[in-house]
Simulated scan of single mutants.
Amino acid sequence: MTDLSSYAGARLPDDAPLLGRLVELRRLDPVAHADDLFAAQSAGDPRLWSYLPYGPFADVSALSAHLRAQAVAEDPWFYAVVVDGAAAGVVSFLRGDAANGVIEIGHIWFGAALQRTPAATETVYLLARHAFDVLGVRRLEWKCDAANVRSRAAAERFGFTYEGTFRQHLIVKGRNRDTAWFSIVDGEWSRVRAGFEAWLDPANFDASGAQRASLAALRA
């Protein structure tokens, strides 16, 4: 068993932006981001809100009210995903447990233009890198509705390990949610980080933008 007697715990997120080559994660600001996020919501993914406890939003005013509540929260801690100066989605850290060095990525929604892009992958990489390398966590979690095939596939693609399903865990929008749990732990992070960085390297893409090697292959 690893001796953790000297482990001082993890930090919790703060206002510092997380900056990548393709995206910037900036503290959610309803004034600056509402119009962009409403446009992202309206860009053609009918399943965007299927598994989240809120949304869709009928107009900018309704979304702005929702964002105002999220922007003042400390747990979850919300970021806008900014691409080329416009907010294209939202992510968060939540359930931060500083003493035990655990935090979760959640409340993820990407507008259709951001989905399945290198920018989306870089978003998750920036969160994971910040969690392990700056906050100092021992465990990074990803949880989703067990019926959410897209989220489960994304978690596994990003290097999270499936740990099991909590049956009848929540009631969301009037229906049962079984919750699938995934994690990356600190002993795995160097391999997972190397895979992300190799995949995100511009050399991994051909002239048409197609990947040369998959993220799973590069992580292996």
Rank of each mutant, 00 (worst) to 15 (best):
T161H: 12
P76E: 08
H130Q: 07
L94D: 01
I103R: 00
A128T: 03
A80P: 06
F166Y: 08
A154H: 10
T117E: 12
I103D: 00
G164Q: 05
W77F: 15
V72G: 10
L67Q: 03
Q70H: 14
V90R: 04
H169F: 04
K143H: 07
N148L: 02
F78S: 04
G106C: 03
L67Y: 01
R138S: 02
A153M: 10
A155T: 02
L135Y: 02
D133T: 05
C144P: 06
T121N: 12
A69H: 13
L140S: 04
V72K: 13
K173Q: 11
Q70R: 15
A120F: 09
D133S: 13
A146T: 11
H107N: 15
D97C: 12
T165N: 04
R157H: 08
G85C: 11
G159D: 04
L127H: 00
F166V: 01
T165F: 03
H130V: 01
A155P: 01
V82T: 10
F78K: 03
A87I: 13
I171G: 00
W77R: 04
L67I: 11
H107W: 15
L67W: 03
A113K: 12
G96P: 03
G136M: 08
I105K: 01
F93E: 00
N100L: 13
D133G: 08
E74H: 14
R152Y: 07
C144S: 11
V91C: 13
E141H: 05
D84K: 14
G159F: 06
P118M: 08
